[in-house]
Design a binder for these strands. Structure first.
Lengths: 129, 129
DNA sequence: GTGGCTGCAAAATGTTTGCACGGAT
DNA sequence: ATCCGTGCAAACATTTTGCAGCCAC
């Protein structure tokens, strides 16, 4: 299975660079501006391939469809429940948490997914009504 | 909207007590053993009502449909990628993490969802092949 | 020419909703 | 009598898959 570098795959990576943690649907709509004939199936298939090859990271948000990130480092996210924006957290801000859980449980931790929800500083200051 | 306590709602709570973090589908199948005529829609509707009333907690696992828990305390979960079992973590094991994130980001944290993935002690000892 | 990728449409999956009926208050 | 909850089926949203054709190697 020798992977090829198609126009469509490149368009998906470009869209991922322009958008912030988009869903597959948002990526599709963005690409359609330039390539109106791209299909849903192609976007989903390529996102799965890119995830397999560790070129993009799939993000899970409660109550939302999957989102995608070009930053594949282990890092976590925080969603503002007021303005809906999603922010990145520093990759190392939770370095020790896996070790802490390993000590508590005897597990060997491979990965974690953490999503915080709250109100961002701007919303706290009333800047987004 | 005065909520009633139907047989079906009670059956869902009973099933939740017997099963471990089940999906809606698993709850439906469990109840069908006793009430073969219960419908999918009823299970989903009641789970939503029970969540609204803080009687059950909805859990999000990457790549899985929603799961439900009778333990509504803020607590986190850990999934063994080998045996597939889901374990609870102590509710207070991550008490300070929200404060840490608030200091780092200026957010006001409302909640977090954390899912760890790894190998459980039994699997590490080779007890589940 | 082989094999991977495409667009398209259909299928699969998980969840919600419209509706007429029935039971509890 | 009212109104909430039910079973059923249809609708909906998201994602995957089957297929014939195409394009790059």
């Amino acid at each position: 299975m020798n992977r090829r570098y198609s126009i469509q795959k490149q368009a998906i990576l470009d869209a991922l660079g322009r958008l912030c943690h988009p869903t597959a649907q948002e990526i599709l709509e963005e690409i359609k501006k330039q390539y109106p004939r791209i299909s849903k199936g192609t976007v989903y298939r390529n996102l799965n391939l890119l995830e397999e090859d560790d070129i993009v990271k799939r993000l899970f948000f409660p109550g939302s469809s999957d989102r995608f990130d070009v930053d594949v480092r282990q890092h976590n996210h925080i969603l503002c429940v007021r303005c809906g924006r999603i922010f990145d957290l520093e990759p190392d801000s939770m370095d020790n948490i896996d070790r802490q859980i390993e000590q508590e449980t005897g597990f060997t931790i491979i990965k974690h997914d953490i999503t915080f929800q709250g109100a961002c500083p701007e919303c706290n200051r009333g800047e987004h009504k």
